[in-house]
Design a protein around this nucleic acid. Structure first.
Length: 487
RNA sequence: GGCGGCAUAGCCAAGUGGUAAGGCAGAGGACUGCAAAUCCUCCAUUCCCCAGUUCAAAUCUGGGUGCCGCCUCCA
């Protein structure tokens, strides 16, 4: 398994700290608003990473924090005249609503800053005792000059950064790049008691404290967006490694941005689209498919047209799956076929599994993995097309194997949900919402079939066109009529 | 100013030394009452430009052009 490590700027062979186990920490959102598509990319991508490790049989410990104490939350709460922690709590709930829709698994632990103040204070105390931090007027700063490796993740030196620094220099800091570990409380802000007086944690220290608590030093993978490399992750490394003298995280993974008209989607530019706005127009499986259709380190440009395209691609997979399920319902014949129909399919399925794994093991190349999924869909279509309305028991076994492979691909990519009772994947375009609709459609189909049997094509076509207007697609096959909702 | 990334068909997008995956769109064919779905075939002599290394380059080196990001909150 090869993983591109931001720390070394190369792909490295992944070796977990503990055999058979993977520890991951992915920076979660600051919960002062609904999440936008840019937030959804790391969510979906790292969820897919986690799913692949699970597929490979690893035991994964996945931690994703919530930053529920922060300037932006405080400001927003002031505007809305509510309590900051309540506001944060509300958006944590909203976060889960969106994440659940995108089929993102809940983390094993979702620690919150507000519930880890003692751990944070302990870490700051440790840094202060070791001379890596200093207090000024109730604030505590990290002394970047005390950590010689500062800049190793982002690949820049303190000199580089200061030359072009656009930061207002706080004269109380020993070095302009020193950053806050603890902020003295201002009136009306949430605060906690500390050795330096009442206050709250700085932005970076939380992740150091919580990652250490739940995963320990030298855990496997730390992930987030490219924009977190500096300063956030650089600072996490400084804090954690200065405090314990051991490597913090071993593999640093960063996803590229979602762009709009090739420009970064961001809250400050105001060109962002909320996940729920998009989900109002497109099904969640399409959004997820689209997010995974490009390699995670490349930028991904967003517009409606691209989601439409992704939807059409995913329809191909869904159609193959529908055909597969149809074939799995066919009666099993005992006698052999005169001409075998499944030539080489079993080997082909094995090859496709290997290709899929190879793609995922090359730095999680989901775009390539998806192309393997398309090949699988084609193989299924070819096979099912040759069955001619009946299967032998051998062929039935092959259908089950193909189904198992689809389920495995789907499970790693997290696209379609599974019906726990039947073990089948749910294809939303198929089937009716209720019994009445199903009955009505079946009745209409029956009437149309009667017209067709009398070669009354005008009536048959009127019905088909009329249903299409309503978003119901009819497909005539030798085995009967199939219907689905428009994708 | 410092640091970094990207440039592949109409569109999206893999591919980092061995002669251009896959998807969408498009064209033709099979199937069909006609469709739809599906299958088959076609659709980049070429990978931003120039020079170089090499038997061999989209892939490596140098130069150029264009776009983007980080250095300030941001996934």
């Amino acid at each position: 398994m090869q993983i591109y490590n931001t720390l070394t700027k190369t792909k490295e062979e992944f070796v977990p700290r503990d055999k058979g186990q993977v520890s991951m920490y992915v920076c979660g959102p600051t919960t002062y608003n609904f999440i936008h598509l840019g937030n959804a990319r790391p969510l979906v991508f790292f969820d897919t990473v986690r799913r692949y490790f699970i597929y490979k049989g690893y035991q994964v410990n996945f931690v994703q924090n919530f930053t529920d104490v922060d300037d932006k939350i405080i400001n927003r709460a002031r505007e809305e005249k509510t309590d900051p922690l309540e506001l944060a709590q509300k958006y944590i709930r909203e976060f889960f609503a969106d994440a659940d829709a995108l089929n993102v698994m809940r983390a094993d632990t979702h620690p919150k800053v507000s519930e880890h103040i003692p751990e944070i204070i302990d870490l700051i105390k440790k840094l202060e005792q070791q001379g890596h931090a200093y207090a000024v007027d109730g604030d505590v700063y990290f002394a970047v000059r005390s950590f010689p490796a500062y800049g190793k993740l982002s690949g820049r030196s303190l000199e580089d950064m200061q030359a072009g620094a656009r930061v207002e220099v706080d004269p109380r800091k020993k070095d302009p790049m020193d950053f806050a570990l603890w902020k003295a409380a201002k009136p009306g802000e949430p605060s906690w008691d500390s050795p330096w007086g009442p206050g709250r944690p700085g932005w970076h220290i939380e992740c150091s404290a919580m990652a250490e608590k739940y995963l320990g030093s030298g855990f496997d993978i730390h992930g987030g967006g490219f924009d977190l490399i500096f300063p956030h992750h650089e600072n996490e490394i400084a804090q954690s490694e200065a405090a314990c003298g051991e490597p913090f995280a071993r593999y640093w993974m960063h996803n590229g941005f979602i762009t709009v008209n090739q420009e970064k989607m961001s809250k400050s530019l105001g060109n962002f689209f909320l996940v729920r706005e998009i989900l109002a127009k497109f099904p969640p499986d399409v959004v997820r498919w689209y997010l995974l259709s490009t390699h995670y380190r490349s930028p991904l440009d967003f517009d409606d047209e691209k989601l439409v395209m992704a939807g059409k691609g995913l329809d191909r997979i869904k159609t193959a799956l529908r055909l597969l399920y149809e074939a799995m319902e066919l009666p099993v014949y005992q006698e052999e076929r005169e001409k075998p129909v499944a030539d080489g399919l079993e080997e082909k399925l094995a090859t496709l599994r290997l290709e899929f794994e190879k793609a995922m093991e090359d730095d999680f190349n989901t775009a390539l993995a998806i192309s393997v999924f398309f090949e699988l869909a084609k193989e299924i279509n070819i096979f099912v097309g040759k069955l001619g309305g009946k299967v032998t028991s051998e062929e039935k076994k092959l259908l089950d194997k193909a189904h198992a492979l689809v389920k495995d691909f789907n499970c790693v990519l997290g696209i379609l949900k599974e019906d726990k009772m039947t073990g089948r994947l749910l294809i939303d375009a198929a089937g009716a919402d209720d019994k009445l609709t199903e009955g009505l459609i079946q009745l209409i189909i029956k009437i149309r079939q009667e017209a067709r049997s009398k070669k009354d094509w005008a009536t048959a076509d009127t019905i088909r066109d009329g249903l299409k207007e309503l978003g119901i697609i009819l497909e005539d096959t030798p085995q009967g009529v199939r219907w689905k909702k428009q994708g």
